[in-house]
Amino acid sequence: MSFLELKNVSKSYGGTPVLRDVNLSIAEGEFVAIVGYSGQGKTTLMSLIAGLTKPDSGSLTLSGQPITGPGPDRGLVFQNYSLLPWLTVAENIELAVKAVFPDQTPAECTAHVDKYIAMVKLSHAKDRRPSQLSGGMRQRVSVARTLAINPRILLLDEPLSALDALTRANLQDEISSIWQSDRKTVVLITNSVDEALLLADRVIPLTLGPGATLAASIPIDLPRPRDRKALNHDPQFKRLRAQITEQLLGFGASRTSSTTRKLVLPDIMPENLDAPRVNRPPRRLSEEKQETVVSL
């Protein structure tokens, strides 16, 4: 029996279908990667599994229990880290630990927090605030916070997409080694085929929206531990990468999609005459702007 199961899940926002008839079945201890273009509902899919949004139709179950809302049994690592900027690294993790394990004594709690900070190699930075950390360090804190609440399933929503290539590679290796040591069920959402191939047992491409759905899954039978340098010359790896990339491109690379969102600009009174000159007229609350973002 599958651990996490999605049956005919559909979700639309304001009449635009985002996901249509998504079926997904993940076994316990499995590492599944979902790859797809930006803006095609990957994050929506993650929010649905996390319980942050409700599907219009279809059902989601975690070990047979329907998912009705968010909860600490599904640990979500957010794309933009979501660390609280006014708390230090240790305090951010402590907040989560205290919320999920309220019965711990203060000493147990501190030990618990320290253990996970050490796991992501940030012991030296535990008293710093997120603004004093690099992007990679922030995401490691975010991962530590999620691991510390000991979720039954780990949801990684493009966790590395905002990082530079080197940091990204380092963190991929770290995630890989953490996963190898405790074999938690993981759903990784990514736009990088290489990342998916490096980490996952199974890769599932997401088709293009509107009304995106999951394509047939591709088992990745590369032996572990996977070494990124060796993989580059592995014929099996090359074949899989070509297959998945082609499939993704086949969904319609020439298509572009655009999302329009409403921006309400703050009403600002000029107070400081030293402010640098900007080459645009001052804007006011009365101007509600629309911003259109074109993405492939």
């Binding site: 979500l76 957010f78 609280l84 907040l95 999920v100």
Partner: peptide
Amino acid sequence: DYLNVGRVLKLSRWKTLTTI
């Protein structure tokens, strides 16, 4: 995102108000 952190951790309303 900050509020989602609170939701995932199932913080109480009061705790969400004071900590987030």
